[in-house]
Nucleic acid binder design. Structure first.
Length: 767
DNA sequence: GCACCGAACTTTTTT
DNA sequence: AGTTCGGTGC
C-alpha cells in the first residue's frame, strides 16, 4: 500500500483516500487524472473497503477503459478480467445480454453503428414514402439520437408543429422497426438499460447494492441520459447504492455538439450534495509559458468551476507565433520548423500538428509529402468501418440473426448474384404484408426471384450448418470464402488492400477469442445452454431468478455475438500507432487526452478557430475557447501557433483576421516570429505584401493578389480595417472603381458587410 | 447490373 | 477543390 500512495501529491492523495462518499475531482490537463482514478480503485480494494466485484468504473472510450485495466493489473495482484471497467456502451451491452429477456430483446440482438443506423433510417423513409427533401435521413437520425440522449422516447417528445409531429411519428416507427429486426443503436443501448433498471426493482436493487463504488472518467462529457443512468446505478435518492466518484474538467468540455452537458458537473455537485470537491491543479506536463497561455486564455470563459494550473517546471520557451501569407506558406513554415526540430534530435512522433477542421490537413499533408517527411493522419476510416469488412460482418450477422434486414440488404446481392432491385421490392412487399423479416419472407417468393433468393438463403444456412462446431476464427474464414467476398475482391484490379483487410479479420477473430477468454476451441455458435452456466444466480424477493451479469461475457453470449458486438462497439484503432516515426496530424478534438513535446496549432483565424458556426450557437465561442485550451495543453515543451492571411476553402480564397484568441494570451509568453507591424508601418508602404515575409513560390501568389486587388481605390483585398460601428474587419473583395468603389468586408463575428468606399469611414489597421 | 456524370455537400466524433 | 452520392443511360 505504501507503494500505491507513494509519489502522490497532497491533492492527489486526498482524492485517492477520500471516504466512501460522493466526490467530484476537478482534474486539470496533465494533472494525473487517470492515475488518481486507478489508484483510487486499487486503494479501495487493497484496504478491503470493497471487493473487485463491487467496483464499477465507466469511461467513454475503449482506449481509456483498457488503459485503466492495464494500470490496475500492474497495481494489484488480481485478475481484472471480470471487473466492471468499461465504456457506458460496453457495460450496457453486457447488462442487456444477460437480461435480454427482461429487456425484451432477442438474445442475439445486434448493435448498429452510425452508418448502419443511417441506412436503417433511409430504408424507413423510403418504405413510408416520406419526402426525403423535407425529412433528410441525417436530420431524423440527429433528432432520434438527440432525444434518446435525453432519455426521451417518441411518446415523451413534445411536438409543436406538423414537421415535428412527423419526426416524432418516424421516431416511433424507427424504434418499432429496430425491435422487429433485433437491432439496437448506440443510444438505445443506454436507454434500454436505463429503462430496464427503472422498471425492474429487484434487478435495480441488486446492482445498486452490488456497486459500492462507481467511478466515472471524463465526467464533463456525459450527456443527460448518462447522468440519469449514473444516478440510477448509484441509487441516488434511495437507501441502497454506492458512492459516485466523478473525475472531470469543465474546461475541457468540447463535445456539446454531440449531447455532452457540462452542466452535469455542477448538477452533480448540487444533487449529490458533494462535500468532497478536490481540485488537481498541479500540472506535470507543460512548461510555464505554455501553462500561462492556457490559464489566461481560459480565464476569459464565464461559468467555470474555477481552476488554475501550475507547474514546477521552469518557464521554458515562449510560444512561437507565425503569420503566414497563405495556407501554403503556413504549411511550409511548419515543415521548416519541424525539420530543424528533427535535426536537433527530436523524434518525429513527438511533433503534433493540430487543426480545427479536417479540410486543413490537405495542404499540410501535401507539403510534408513533397518534403519527404513521414507523417500520420488520424481520423480516417477505422478498420471495422471499411466497406469490405462491413460486408463480411453483415454475413456474420445473418448467421447469428437472419432477421437483421440491414445486413440482409447489404449482402443479398453482394457479390452480385443476379438479385436486382425489382426482386428486392417484391420481397419487401411480402415482408411488409406478413409483418416479417426479409429473410423470413423469402419462402413466399415464387418464380425466378424465388429461386435466386432461395439460393442466397441456402448459402447462409449452409455456412451456418457447416460452422456449427467451429471456433470463431475458422468460422470467419469459412464465411469469407463461402460468401464469395474473397474471390470477388481477388478478381478486382484494386482489390489487393481489401483482400488484405478481409484476411486480417481472421487474425482479428483469433486475437479477440484469446483476449476475451473464450477457449480457443469453443464453438463460435454457443447455444442458450451457456445461460445456465452463468454464475451468481440470485433470487429476488418476488421469487424471480436473476442472473447476475457477473460472469465473463463468454457465458452469456456466444463468441460470434461477442465478436459482432466488438466490431460495432470498437471500430478499431485509429489512435496512437506507437513507435511510428512520423509527424502526428490530427484535429484538436482527436488530440484530447494525448500529449507531445512539440505542438503546432494551425489556422488560428477568425472563422476557422473559433469556427464561424460557433458564433451562432450560444456558448459556442466558449466551447471553441475550451477547444483552444485543450490544444495548448497538449504541449510539453514547445508550442507553435500560426495563422494565414489567405486560405483556400471550398474552392475559393478567403481572407481572415487573426484569431481573437491571440488577444487572450499573455504578451510575455509569446514570441512573434513574423515582424510585428508597427502602426506607422502602413503609412509608408502601399501594400503589406511588399514587405511581408514570403517564401518561395508563394511570393508570386501574394503579389498577384496584391496587384489584382488595389484597383486604384487605395484599398487592397486582405487589408485589415476598422469601422466605427462594425469594429475590425478584413477586406474580402473590391468592386467598381474610382468614386464608385465598394468593398466587401468580413467583420468577423459581426458578419459580412458591403460598404461604399466613398461614404464609409474606414481606418487602416496594422496586422 | 454497371459505368459514368453531375449535383450537393463540406466543424468537431465516440460508442 | 475535392469527394461522395444518387440518378440516368446503356
Amino acid at each position: 500500500m505504501q507503494n500505491l500512495l507513494h509519489n502522490l501529491n497532497p491533492e492527489q492523495l486526498a482524492a485517492v483516500t477520500l471516504p466512501p462518499q460522493n466526490a467530484l475531482i476537478l482534474a486539470g490537463a496533465g494533472s494525473g487524472k487517470t492515475r488518481v482514478l486507478t489508484t483510487r480503485i486499487a486503494w479501495l480494494i487493497q484496504t478491503g473497503q470493497v471487493s473487485p466485484a463491487g467496483v464499477l468504473a465507466v469511461t467513454f472510450t475503449n482506449k481509456a477503459a483498457k488503459e485503466m485495466l492495464a494500470r490496475l493489473s500492474a497495481m494489484l495482484p488480481i485478475n481484472t478480467r471480470g471487473m466492471w471497467v468499461g465504456t457506458f456502451h460496453g457495460l450496457c451491452n453486457r447488462l442487456l445480454r444477460t437480461h435480454y429477456r427482461d429487456a425484451a430483446l432477442p438474445q442475439t440482438f445486434q448493435i448498429l453503428d452510425s452508418q448502419d443506423q443511417l441506412s436503417v433510417i433511409k430504408r424507413l423513409l423510403k418504405a413510408n414514402n416520406v419526402d426525403d427533401e423535407k425529412y433528410p435521413a441525417k436530420n431524423l437520425m440527429y433528432f432520434i439520437n438527440n432525444n434518446k440522449d435525453q432519455g426521451l422516447r417518441a411518446k415523451d417528445v413534445d411536438a409543436y408543429d406538423a414537421t415535428e409531429r412527423k419526426m416524432v411519428e418516424l421516431y416511433d416507427l424507427y424504434d418499432e422497426q429496430c425491435q422487429r429486426e433485433g437491432v439496437v443503436d448506440f443510444a438505445e443501448l443506454l436507454l434500454r438499460t436505463y429503462e430496464l433498471l427503472s422498471r425492474n426493482q429487484p434487478l435495480r436493487e441488486h446492482y445498486q447494492l452490488r456497486f459500492r463504488h462507481i467511478l466515472v472518467d471524463e465526467f464533463q462529457d456525459t450527456n443527460d441520459l448518462q447522468y440519469k443512468w449514473l444516478k440510477l446505478m448509484s441509487g441516488h435518492g434511495s437507501a441502497a447504492g454506492g458512492a459516485l466518484f466523478a473525475v472531470g474538467d469543465d474546461d475541457q468540455s468540447i463535445y456539446a455538439f454531440r449531447g455532452a452537458n457540462v452542466g452535469n458537473m455542477s448538477a452533480f455537485e448540487r444533487e449529490f450534495q458533494v462535500k468532497n470537491l478536490i481540485k488537481l491543479e498541479q500540472n506535470y506536463r507543460s512548461h510555464g509559458h505554455i501553462l500561462d497561455a492556457a490559464n489566461m486564455l481560459i480565464s476569459n470563459n464565464s461559468r467555470r468551476l474555477g481552476k488554475n494550473l501550475r507547474t514546477d517546471a521552469g518557464h521554458g520557451e515562449q510560444v512561437r507565433v507565425y503569420e503566414a501569407s497563405s495556407d501554403l506558406q503556413e504549411a511550409q513554415w511548419i515543415i521548416e520548423e519541424s525539420k530543424s526540430l528533427i535535426n536537433e534530435g527530436t523524434s518525429r512522433s513527438e511533433i503534433a500538428v493540430l487543426y480545427r477542421s479536417n479540410a486543413q490537413s490537405r495542404v499540410i499533408e501535401h507539403a510534408l509529402f513533397s518534403a519527404g517527411i513521414p507523417y500520420h493522419v488520424y481520423g480516417g476510416l477505422r478498420y471495422f468501418q471499411r466497406a469490405e469488412v462491413k460486408h463480411a460482418i453483415a454475413y456474420l450477422q445473418l448467421m447469428d440473426n437472419p432477421h437483421n434486414d440491414s445486413a440482409f440488404l447489404r449482402v443479398v446481392n453482394f457479390p452480385a448474384r443476379g438479385i436486382g432491385a425489382r426482386t428486392i421490392e417484391q420481397l419487401q412487399g411480402a415482408a411488409e404484408q406478413y409483418g416479417i423479416s426479409l429473410y423470413a419472407a423469402v419462402p413466399y417468393m415464387v418464380g425466378k426471384a424465388g429461386t435466386s433468393l432461395g439460393g442466397f438463403v441456402k448459402m447462409v444456412e449452409g455456412m451456418r450448418f457447416e460452422t456449427q462446431q467451429m471456433a470463431l476464427p475458422e468460422l470467419v474464414r469459412i464465411v469469407l470464402d463461402g460468401s464469395g467476398l474473397l474471390q470477388h475482391y481477388q478478381g478486382e484490379k484494386e482489390g489487393a488492400d481489401r483482400v488484405e483487410n478481409l484476411e486480417q479479420m481472421v487474425s482479428a477473430a483469433t486475437q479477440f477469442v484469446s483476449e476475451e477468454g473464450y477457449g480457443q476451441g469453443a464453438p463460435a455458435h454457443l447455444g442458450p445452454q451457456a445461460q445456465a452456466q452463468a454464475g451468481n444466480a440470485i433470487v429476488s424477493a418476488d421469487g424471480v431468478e436473476i442472473i447476475d451479469a457477473d460472469a465473463p461475457l463468454a457465458t452469456v453470449m456466444s463468441p460470434l455475438s461477442a465478436f459482432l458486438s466488438h466490431a460495432s462497439l470498437e471500430a478499431g484503432d485509429n489512435q496512437a500507432q506507437a513507435g511510428q516515426e512520423a509527424l502526428q496530424l490530427m484535429t484538436v478534438h482527436s488530440a484530447k487526452g494525448l500529449e507531445f513535446d512539440n505542438v503546432f496549432i494551425t489556422g488560428l483565424e477568425e472563422g476557422l478557430f473559433p469556427h464561424e458556426s460557433s458564433s451562432k450557437e450560444d456558448g459556442g465561442v466558449e466551447e471553441e475557447r475550451r477547444l483552444m485550451y485543450v490544444a495548448i495543453t497538449r504541449a510539453r515543451q514547445r508550442l507553435y501557433m500560426c495563422f494565414s492571411q489567405t486560405r483556400m476553402l471550398h474552392g475559393q480564397t478567403r481572407y481572415n483576421m487573426k484569431s481573437r484568441f491571440f488577444d487572450e494570451l499573455p504578451e510575455e509568453s509569446l514570441k512573434w516570429l513574423s515582424p510585428k507591424v508597427q502602426s506607422h508601418w502602413f503609412a509608408n508602404k502601399k501594400s503589406a505584401w511588399d514587405e511581408a515575409p514570403l517564401a518561395g513560390s508563394d511570393n508570386a501568389i501574394a503579389r498577384q493578389i496584391a496587384q489584382k486587388s488595389s484597383g486604384g481605390s487605395g484599398w487592397r483585398i486582405g487589408e485589415s480595417v476598422a469601422h466605427a460601428k462594425f469594429g475590425e474587419g478584413v477586406i474580402v473583395n473590391l468592386e467598381g472603381s474610382g468614386s464608385n468603389c465598394r468593398a466587401q468586408i468580413n467583420f468577423g463575428n459581426v458578419g459580412m458587410k458591403v460598404l461604399d468606399l466613398s461614404v464609409a469611414k474606414l481606418d487602416r489597421l496594422p496586422r
